[in-house]
Design a protein around this nucleic acid. Structure first.
Lengths: 79, 79
DNA sequence: GAATCCTGATCACTATAGTCTGCAGTAAAA
DNA sequence: TTTTACTGCAGACTATAGTGATCAGGATTC
């Protein structure tokens, strides 16, 4: 478990979601994804496809590149 | 075929690869991916995972966010 | 005109992403 | 203390990503 924690996509996702006061279920609705899968992503158990990244970005109201930048920013703080 | 052409990940990939004078095979070596799969991506037949996006970005010598930005830039020009 | 480089393309296969259902546990509110 | 909201988690399943091998064909180059 936690195979991909060094990438911290999950941390970025959770941070962006929380900043918007969205529950996992609400974000699932907004992005058209499954609630349990968002949970999996936030725990870094799997890595999303580009399709999913775009769907989540739409749900969060940002661009995919901004999403990835947030991930890189968190990544940079850790290293 | 060409299911994902409206996203133009493939066009961005090909553009960035050509700018660096890399063959598909050379980029495959640099990124640790399969040559035929890069061909598939450039023709927009499949969408990459985040893992693959990061691998390609490394092979191209850029950040993943810059890669996505290039895609969004091309996307913007089309719309 | 054989040799090399490059890319499209197919097929069979393995690995992983993503869905769906349901249950458990915590916390806050009523 | 019941109800509600939220999330972790598991299992079975479907869909798609990604590999590896191989062939065909165009474009150099010798």
């Amino acid at each position: 478990m936690d195979y991909y924690s060094h990438l911290d996509f999950g941390k970025a996702l959770k941070k962006l979601r929380k900043e918007r006061n969205l529950s996992q279920e609400k974000l699932a609705d907004l992005s058209g994804l499954d609630r349990s899968y968002i949970s999996i992503l936030e725990r870094n158990l799997k890595l999303p496809s580009l399709y999913t990244i775009l769907a989540l970005a739409t749900g969060l109201g940002i661009k995919a590149s901004e999403f990835i930048m947030e991930m890189e920013k968190i990544q940079y703080l850790i290293e």
